[in-house]
Amino acid sequence: MLQRMFQKIAFAVVPVGVVLFASGMIVQAQDDPVKAGARIASSGFGGVPACSSCHGTRGQGNPVAGFPALAGLNATYLERQILDMKAGTRLLNPAMEPVVQGLDATQIQAVSAYYASIPAVAGPAVAGGDVARGKELVEQGDWDRRIPACSQCHGPNAAGIGPNFPRLAGQSAMYLANQMGAWKRDERKNDVNGLMSTVAKRLTDADVAALGAYLQSLGEGGGQ
C-alpha cells in the first residue's frame, strides 16, 4: 500500500520536473527583457551608441543639454515614442537616428522595459524659474485660461498615469520646453486625441518656464 502510494507520487512528480526544467531553458534562451535592455542602455548594440551616453547612467537624462530623463517612464509610452520616431511620426534629435535605425522592435521593447524598471531621480534646481507658479499649474492648473491641472491627467505630482500620460516629475526643464514648443507649432502630433497639443497652445512661455522649474525638481515619488 505504502509502496504503491510512493510510486504514484514519484510518477506525478517527474513530469512536473521536466516541465519546470524545460521552461527554465526557454527563459534563459530568450533572456530577461529588462536585462537585455540594460545591456543596450549601458553598452549599445552594433552601431547603436549606449543610451547612457546621452540619457545618463541612471536614466536621469542631461537637463543642461535637454536630453530627457527616461528612468521611471511607462514602458509602453517609451516604446511607442521610439517606434513613432522609427515610423517618422515623431520628430527626433539627429543623435537618435542610429538608435531608431539600429534597434529592432524586440530591442526597443527591452530598452523601454529597462528604463521603466529603474527609479526616477530629481533633477538639479533650475535657476530663474518660478517654482511656486509651476507647482500651482501642476496641482490646480489655470482654469481661468482653461488650463487643466497637469495632475488631472499625469497623476498626483505628475508621476505619470499609464501609457498615455507620461511621468513629468524629474524631467529636464529644457526638454519639456522643447516639447511644448513642438506641440504648439504642431511639429509633435503623437498625443492621443490631440489632448496635449490643445493644452500646450494655451501655455505662455512664462508658464512653460515655471512648469519646467518645478517639474525638474521633483523626485521618485513626485515629491521634492
Binding site: 500651482e136 485660461r145 494655451r202
Partner: peptide
C-alpha cells in the same frame, strides 16, 4: 484661435487657493 480660448469666459474670476 486657441488664444481666444485662453481668455476668461465669465464675468467673475474667483480668487485663487493661494
Amino acid at each position: 484661435d486657441p488664444v481666444a480660448v485662453a481668455q476668461p469666459v465669465s464675468g467673475h474670476i474667483a480668487p485663487k487657493l493661494s
